[in-house]
């Protein structure tokens, strides 16, 4: 499904501020894998996701999605493979457009934009049904501006938009980090539901150890631009926070010093 080979990405190359964000990471994700990615600040989690999404090109290495080499493909040209939800709830939707207009934009991901009317009547019915499943009362607000919604509502809508047209790979970049704990839980449960429903392959970056353990069938821990822990299946199911920290210390050769990860509940 996704094959990342020896990916290297540095920022501010050739300046005193040079930062190696990805240090030759390789990764193979099988169809149906739901991988949680965890790691401290600057571990390279978001950089990995952004490289896969095409936000910036890697210095070297290869990215294959379904055997297609997308390494040099522009962001909009590889969008047809990807569903994406961002950390910032404002980033995934167009605030000044209505809920149905946003959904219609997402429903045409990867297709040519023509001079046909942007929303067809039969689409509206489908949107209404799908919004009703969110249980947020959005099904009666199809023509409301998205800017009027709360952060949690916008994130749930972005998630719906990312999966409306079934993606080959769903990329979730700390998509609940900006939400309050209760809303974060709702959005996470929704995420799991969508992934199960359509048997999606997903990569979810989180800074929350418990969520990384609770969701998904595979866990990846990153440190200094490399994957230092990679557990899947049953081995992951029996894993606990303490095990995770021991595993990290053994592989990274140093103590886990990210307050953000330890303190997050």
């Amino acid at each position: 499904m996704l094959k990342v080979t020896k990916l290297i990405k540095s920022f501010n190359r050739g300046t005193p501020n040079e930062k190696l964000a990805l240090d030759g990471i390789s990764l193979v994700i099988r169809p149906g894998d739901f991988v949680t990615v965890i790691g401290g600040n600057g571990a390279g989690k978001s950089t990995l996701l952004n490289c896969v999404a095409g936000v910036f090109p890697p210095d070297s290495g290869k990215i294959l999605i379904d055997d297609a080499d997308v390494t040099r493909l522009s962001e909009h040209n590889r969008a047809k493979y990807l569903g994406r939800v961002f950390q910032d709830p404002m980033m995934g939707t167009a605030a000044d457009m209505t809920i149905e207009e946003n959904l219609a934009l997402a429903n045409r991901r990867g297709t040519r934009r023509t001079l046909r009317w942007q929303i067809q009547a039969d689409e509206r019915k489908r949107y209404k049904e799908m919004l009703a499943e969110l249980n947020l009362g959005l099904e009666d607000r199809l023509t409301s501006r998205v800017g009027l919604l709360s952060g949690g509502q916008r994130q749930a809508l972005t998630l719906l938009m990312a999966t409306l047209r079934v993606p080959k790979l769903l990329l979730l970049d700390e998509h609940t980090a900006a939400l309050d704990p209760k809303t974060a839980e709702t959005v996470l449960d929704l995420t799991e539901k969508y992934i199960k429903q359509s048997a999606l392959t997903a990569l979810m970056v989180t800074h929350n150890m418990r969520n990384a353990l609770r969701y998904g069938n595979r866990l990846l821990m990153m440190h200094n631009g490399r994957a230092v822990v990679d557990v899947a299946g049953e081995a992951k199911q029996i894993l606990e926070v303490n095990d995770l920290m021991r595993l990290f210390e053994r592989s990274a050769g140093e103590e886990l010093a990210s307050d953000r990860m330890l303190l997050a509940d």
């Binding site: 962001e75 909009h76 961002f86 404002m90 980033m91 934009r113």
Partner: peptide
Amino acid sequence: INKNMVRAQGIN
């Protein structure tokens, strides 16, 4: 309104 979102939807 939001170029990031537009690119993520596959639009140039």
